[in-house]
Design a protein around this nucleic acid. Structure first.
Length: 730
DNA sequence: GCGATCAGCT
DNA sequence: CACAGCTGATCGC
């Protein structure tokens, strides 16, 4: 939840995402997206009075946010005071003090934030410097490098301050599976259920908030079935979303709400109360998208976890993970960073301190001043337009001109369409977007988080939440795995020996991982055609601990039970490497939850883990993932290459702790002028060949890659809680 | 009656 | 769980 008070130090006469108290008197208001915690005071009497008295004050937001806001009758009074600004269109705004006539000009640019429909970041450029307010955001690693308007030429603009979404800037959320992986997990689960019969329906237990549209539209496209929701009036002018939703209850995918929907579900009824026409009871599973629930889990990182007889949790996040935020912040490298979200039990100062190492102006000035200033990666071979006349427009401002697969929902179909995969026809660019190399985590940051991480990844989860169902038993850490900052965790006791042993194992594994990354990075440099499957995966840190023999037996037994004789191997979880990966080749022919299985669920002992952990190349080749990133992300962010030069550079930089490159500090006046002149979307063509330069990895002069022994020593010292100080090698 | 705030819940 | 948002109780205007 946002704790941002509404005002930025640099531009205190404007208010963002807060409209109470002193914010009422702002010269201009900004709204990043339509979530209630960013709308505090937005319909309060004080603000209504202000609007009546003022001739100049306006609320600025994206066109989609304006639409969503004005659809709510309670906010309709804003109609004549709200100004929609096109995304990625630098726009000058005059901030006028109505009492004195004093005027200040500021250029604001809205940048897509990938949080929910209409969500944006605000980039402000004016006499007090360039500042970025991120609102809430979810951007994949590397995406920031492709945001042209954060760059000047090929270099990142000098950002004086960033006001940052720190919701998951916490090692517990070190890595969250990316959007397409989560989506794919859900799609696979939904497919496995609704294809059993027309009486099999899924209920998406989503909280009433904007942000799940991406899920609904993709499910709808995948299966050709509209998703039942209680209301859809807010999307009346957004055909892209509207066509995938329905208020007709006769569908197999529901996202409807009812105040007592959990009670309904327990009674095997949907919140909307729909029953089969012939009286046959519907067979319902619930899928609850969650992030924090998964953040607490350390043993399994599967994107889908069965939590009850017919209940599942699906990993789904509107916010960037720790590594995503870190990547974003490291690329921006602002002089100052302020958190918008303060976790319980922490103070703003605590978080500022954590953010400080990623800023330019910290004490280790020279080291931190060295910044690769990663060149802006431009989209290649993709064109898009703002004036596309087909029905794509409306929601996300701009539209890809390249076609993506589109299935028209079949409203009348009673039987679910087991959608055939057609991604083979897709240009690869559409599905290979935003793969991470995973090799580009910075060494130093990894080192600095290792200690926390080791502790974290072992943290206990005596999670006893979830439905009070008889077979409830999510497989979690056993007591002897518990380490918490060297102290026993509250819920479990354990021996110090076993803790140390675990820690040591963890560190050894980490060393191997880091060494592996080193080698891989070297290999990357020499072999640009390297297969991505060979890239080291930090996620392997999060791999489940090997199951005990009995657990394995249970797991296998359960898998067989559930799948019957159809495809027991699908459920093999014995190698502890990949959990259950359902390939596109066989998933359409074999279901992975059998009818028979479902009827036996009451006696099933453990959580069933489904899908996930597939390597990146799976998500590319499997072709099941019908992702329309453009729904949330600007087309220019879709690129064909994925090896993050910036991050590799950053990694190298951090390995060698060198500081050789100057910062480009932009002339503010020039910057403002450029911004003001660019009142149309910046679409400069990249005449210089980015194709090759994106893959060039210049080595830092005199850099020195640490040896394994050195790293081991570092880890030992980190594990022992010692302060590790990097030697400057110049 | 309405708004603000908080506890409780999901 | 602190995600985002509801409901209901209480208090003040």
């Amino acid at each position: 939840m946002s704790c941002f008070e509404g005002r930025m130090k640099e531009y205190p006469t404007i208010s963002i995402d807060r409209y109470d108290k002193e914010n009422v008197n702002a010269r201009a208001y900004f709204l990043s997206h339509c979530h209630k915690d960013h709308m505090k005071g937005l319909r309060a009497p004080a603000l209504k009075r202000r609007l009546k008295c003022s001739l100049t004050v306006r609320l600025y937001c994206s066109p989609v946010t304006k639409e969503l806001l004005l659809t709510n009758p309670r906010y309709r009074f804003w109609e004549n005071h709200i100004v929609a600004i096109e995304v990625e269109t630098p726009t000058q705004i005059s901030l006028i003090d109505e009492a004195t006539g004093e005027k200040e000009d500021i250029v604001v640019t809205l940048l897509p934030a990938g949080h929910c429909p209409g969500s944006v970041m605000f980039l402000f450029e004016g006499s007090n410097g360039t500042v970025l307010y991120t609102g809430d955001f979810r951007l994949a690693k590397g995406e920031v490098t492709r945001m042209e308007l954060l760059h000047s030429g090929s270099r990142i603009k000098y950002i004086k301050s960033i006001y940052l979404d720190t919701t998951f800037f916490d090692p517990r959320f070190y890595q969250i599976p990316d959007r397409e992986e989560c989506l794919k997990g859900i799609i696979d689960l939904v497919r496995s259920w609704i294809t059993l019969s027309s009486y099999h329906v899924v209920w998406l237990n989503c909280k009433a908030a904007y942000g799940y549209e991406y899920l609904f539209t993709n499910l709808s496209e995948e299966f050709g079935i509209q998703v039942h929701v209680r209301y859809l009036d807010m999307f009346r002018n957004m055909p892209d979303i509207l066509q995938h939703l329905t208020t007709n209850r006769e569908t197999q995918i529901h996202a409807c709400r009812h105040p007592k929907d959990d009670e309904f579900f327990r009674g095997n009824r949907l919140p909307c109360g729909i029953i089969a026409k012939d009286g046959t009871p519907l067979k319902i599973i619930s899928i609850k998208p969650s992030t924090m629930w998964f953040g607490e889990r350390t043993k399994k990182t599967n994107v889908i976890v069965r939590t009850g007889a017919s209940s599942y949790r699906a990993c789904f996040s509107f916010h960037s993970s720790y590594t995503e935020v870190r990547d974003f912040l490291m690329h921006i490298s602002p002089a100052h960073a302020y958190p918008n979200v303060i976790p319980m039990g922490k103070t703003t100062e605590d978080i500022i301190e954590i953010l400080q190492p990623f800023c330019r102006s910290n004490s280790r000035t020279e080291e931190s001043m060295y910044k690769p200033l990663g060149p802006l990666k431009r989209a290649k071979m993709i064109s898009y337009t703002t004036t596309d006349s087909d029905s794509e427009e409306g929601l996300f401002e701009e539209t890809l001109t390249i076609p993506w697969r589109r299935k028209i929902p079949n409203e009348k179909s009673n039987l679910p369409l087991c959608a055939e995969t057609t991604s083979d026809n897709l240009p690869k660019s559409q599905i290979s977007f935003c793969e991470d190399t995973a090799a580009d985590y910075s060494m130093a940051a990894s080192l600095s988080t290792l200690k926390n991480f080791c502790i974290d990844c072992e943290e206990s989860n005596d999670d006893d939440d979830e439905e009070e169902e008889e077979d409830e038993d999510t497989v979690e850490c056993s007591a002897d795995q518990t380490v918490n900052g060297g102290k026993p965790c509250v819920s479990h006791s354990h021996s110090v020996d076993s803790s140390l042993k675990k820690l040591e194992t963890c560190c050894n594994e980490a060393t191997e991982e880091i060494t592996s990354q080193q080698n891989q990075a070297e290999k990357l440099k020499s072999d640009l055609d390297i297969s991505k499957s060979e890239l080291p995966m930090w996620e392997s840190f999060f791999k489940p601990d090997p199951l005990t023999d009995s657990e394995q037996e249970d797991s296998q037994k359960q898998c067989v039970d559930l799948t019957g004789s159809q495809s027991p191997n699908l459920f093999s979880d014995t190698d502890n490497e990949e959990c259950i990966y359902i390939s596109s080749q066989n998933s359409s022919q074999s279901t992975h939850i059998s009818e028979q299985g479902s009827e036996c669920w009451g006696s099933q002992p453990d959580t069933v883990l489904i899908s996930s952990q597939e390597r990146k190349e799976h998500s590319v080749s499997a072709g099941q993932c019908n992702v329309k990133f453009c729904d949330f992300l600007k087309p220019q962010e879709i690129v064909l290459n994925n090896f993050g030069k910036t991050n590799l550079e950053g990694r190298e930089q951090m390995i060698s702790f060198k500081s050789t490159q100057c910062l480009l500090i932009e002339d503010l006046a020039t910057s403002s002028k450029i911004a003001a002149e660019n009142t149309v979307p910046v679409q400069q063509s990249t005449c210089d060949s980015q194709d090759s330069s994106d893959f060039e990895i210049p080595s830092t002069p005199d850099s020195e890659v640490p040896q394994e022994e050195q790293l081991k020593d570092l880890y030992k010292r980190l594990a022992a809680g010692e302060m590790v100080i990097a030697k400057k090698s110049i």
